[in-house]
């Protein structure tokens, strides 16, 4: 690996990926505009958007990094559904649940202090936790699958897992949020 390379090389290797990812993120933006329309029925909803996307990214990238290390060190096997892999996936889901619960409390407090109309604390909690559960399950399994498949194909999971799960993660999470809002608001809770 070279660190002392030329400015041009840094630009050449980084710029295409940055532009590509920002184009993928336009899909997230498209769904975000649906979220803004839903916010009429769920005032304060926008407060949890950056947080839920951020948590998703941080939890999945840590999970991806741990599974990659496990594959390199050999305590996770690419050929069977080992216990260490199961435990890691469960940790990813559990962290999503705990953190999305905490996030909804923070969001409700922020909303009550700064906004004249807010949905109830129960709605904040239900929407956030449901999104955390759905996206946590989907993305923990997706991240694990990408790492395992990369490893089977002889690719270094450290290089492939993080960028691909990050770009899928935002789109999937915002779709899960949209589903959760519709369920919670639709049920009239």
């Amino acid at each position: 690996m070279t660190v002392a390379n030329s400015s041009w090389r840094i630009v050449e290797e980084t710029l295409p990926i940055i532009i590509l990812f920002s184009l993928i993120e336009l899909f997230t933006g498209g769904f975000l505009s649906s979220i803004v329309s839903e916010a009429v029925n769920a005032p304060g909803l926008l407060i949890i958007v950056p947080g839920i996307l951020g948590l998703r990214g941080n939890i999945s990238s840590a999970l991806g990094a741990r599974i990659s290390s496990g594959l390199h060190l050999g305590y996770i096997s690419a050929n069977k559904f080992s216990d260490a892999l199961k435990v890691n996936i469960l940790i990813g889901i559990a962290l999503s649940l705990i953190m999305s619960f905490l996030l909804s409390i923070f969001a409700w407090m922020m909303c009550s202090w700064t906004s004249p109309v807010c949905m109830s604390l129960i709605n904040f909690v239900l929407i956030s936790v449901l999104t955390g559960l759905l996206s946590g399950v989907i993305l923990s399994f997706t991240t694990a699958s990408i790492a395992i498949l990369s490893s089977r194909r002889g690719l270094d999971p450290d290089n492939t897992t993080l960028p691909s799960s990050a770009s899928i993660g935002d789109v999937m999470t915002i779709i899960c949020l949209l589903i959760a809002v519709n369920l919670v608001v639709g049920l009239g809770l």
Partner: peptide
């Protein structure tokens, strides 16, 4: 991140 959310909201 709640502060980013506040700006959006």
């Amino acid at each position: 991140s709640i502060f980013s959310g506040f700006f959006l909201n």
